[in-house]
Structures are given as structure tokens and as C-alpha cells.
């Protein structure tokens, strides 16, 4: 692992609003956080708190209204997704829809490699390696997305995100459409990836219990603001903000 002076990702005072003037609606207000290399940041919030928008902003899929985003100290605010895609890959909640239904998984992955890494000579070996790393049979890569189960497609989409060796994965509710057993499988493979490759991640979810098992730090979001940020122990054992307490109280553990 390389340690840098500047954090891998820094978000400074970013805000996002839709519409203009009086009709405008602010969905994110004044967000700040830093993310170091190899760290996993969990972002927790209920629906409509703006957590998915935040990922779209970081990955430049949508422009920010205000503020700055820095990658290793370099300000990349206002860039195109094509510029940042070497650093970040986004994994979406609806993984089946994240693959072109008319192409096999391998074809979609090849496209990633071709556009990002530029060489195709080695592509099949790289794809097989990543698919294997996610614990899937390499033959499954030659199928169409709808021919795989939800958990399998989600693992494929993580594999696709990783073939181009980005610095960071942005995960948007990647397990919420899945059954618990498939969710647990994904978490295990992600954990192994962290151990093997020191992968940095932003892990957006609504499941506080799940995040507390996996993340280094957890940020609690409410109505477009981060109300509390801390390690799982701090958040789970000594929550400061009322909203965090409310969320924590609503987690239904199996008794």
C-alpha cells in the first residue's frame, strides 16, 4: 500500500441543487469528508437523503452546484466521467440493468478494458482472473446478464469494475436487492479484495448493521447533510447525534 501525503479523495463543501431560484431544491448541502488510501467509508441514510446523488457527483456523472472534489490533491471538479473513470468505478444497485442486455458479460467487460486500458491482447485472462476472484465460474462470463441470478450479476459487475484496476470503488446499495445469503457472499468477496489489494471504497447503504461489519468509518446522512461521522465503534456504541440514535434504535437484529 502506498501512503500519500494528500488523501485519496477529498470532498470540500460540495452542494447540489436541482432547478433554479425559488423552485430550486437543494438535495445536498455543504458536504465535507476525506478518504485515505485503503479505507472503506460507509454512507448510511434513508431514502431521499441524497446518498446516491453524492456518488453521481463524485464520479462526475452529474455536475456539482458548488464546492470542490480532489483526487490525491488534484482538483477534478467539473471534469467528464471519461476523465475520472481511471480512478473510480461505480457499482449500481440494479446490477442486471447495469449490463447491456444485448451483450454477454464478457463483451461488456472487454469494452471496459478496451476503452480504459487500451489493450485487448490480455483481456480474456484479466477478465477470467477477476471473475475467479469474485468466486464465479469463468464460463458464466459468456452468458447474458438475465441468465444469471441477482447475486451472480452483482458479483460480475464488481468484477467488471475491477478489471481496469481503479483506485476506488463506489458502491451504491449494491446488496439491497439481494437475498441475505447472496449479500453475505458479496461482503465476503469484498472483504478479501480489501485484504489482497487494499481497495478503497465508498459503500452507500441503508443497512447500518451491515456497514458496521465492514466499514472503517461510517457517515450518517440526513436530508442532504452528514450529521455524524466516525468509526463503527463510535457510531454504534456512543452515537452523538439524535438521528444516529434513532437509526440505531431501528436496527432489528435477530434476537
Amino acid at each position: 500500500m502506498v501512503t500519500c501525503e494528500a488523501p485519496l479523495l477529498e470532498v470540500r463543501n460540495i452542494a447540489k441543487s436541482y432547478g433554479k431560484g425559488k423552485k430550486g431544491k437543494e438535495v445536498l448541502t455543504d458536504l465535507n469528508f476525506k478518504l485515505n488510501e485503503g479505507e472503506v467509508l460507509g454512507i448510511i441514510g434513508e431514502s431521499g437523503c441524497g446518498k446516491s446523488v453524492l456518488l453521481n457527483l463524485i464520479s462526475c456523472l452529474e455536475p456539482v452546484s458548488q464546492g470542490q472534489m480532489l483526487f490525491r490533491g488534484e482538483d477534478y471538479t467539473g471534469r467528464k466521467p471519461a476523465y475520472v473513470c481511471r480512478w473510480f468505478q461505480v457499482i449500481f444497485q440494479d446490477s442486471e440493468a447495469a449490463f447491456d442486455p444485448k451483450k454477454t458479460i464478457r463483451q461488456s467487460m472487454r469494452e471496459n478494458l478496451k476503452l480504459l486500458a487500451g489493450d485487448l491482447a490480455d483481456s480474456d485472462r484479466k477478465i477470467d482472473e477477476m471473475v475467479g476472484l469474485m468466486g464465479l465460474d469463468t464460463k458464466l462470463a459468456d452468458r447474458y446478464p438475465r441468465q444469471l441470478s441477482g447475486g451472480q450479476v452483482q458479483r460480475m459487475s464488481i468484477a467488471r469494475g475491477l478489471v481496469t484496476e481503479p483506485n476506488m470503488l463506489l458502491c451504491d446499495e449494491i446488496t439491497s436487492a439481494l437475498d441475505v445469503s447472496a449479500q453475505a457472499m458479496i461482503m465476503q468477496y469484498l472483504y478479501q479484495l480489501r485484504k489482497k489489494r487494499g481497495l478503497t471504497m465508498v459503500f452507500v447503504s441503508h443497512d447500518l448493521a451491515l456497514c458496521s461489519t465492514f466499514c472503517d468509518r461510517i457517515a450518517i446522512m440526513k436530508e442532504g447533510k452528514i450529521v455524524e461521522i466516525g468509526t463503527p465503534d463510535e457510531i454504534m456504541d456512543a452515537p452523538k447525534h439524535d438521528y444516529t440514535k434513532l437509526l440505531l434504535d431501528a436496527v432489528l437484529y435477530v434476537k
Partner: peptide, 26 residues
């Protein structure tokens, strides 16, 4: 608006490429 178009944009695809290889076949 489907996620796979966003996924393509994140691989650095140009709009023309997305239209020809992803939108039109679908």
C-alpha cells in the same frame, strides 16, 4: 436512463460509441 449507460460513460465511452453500440441495438 438505465444504469448500464452510466456504467458505459464511466468507462470513458464517447456519446457516439454509446449510441451506436448500446442504444441502437436495444
Amino acid at each position: 436512463q438505465l444504469p448500464f449507460i452510466n456504467a458505459c460513460r464511466l468507462t470513458g465511452c464517447s456519446d457516439a460509441h454509446i449510441i451506436i453500440t448500446h442504444v441502437v441495438p436495444n
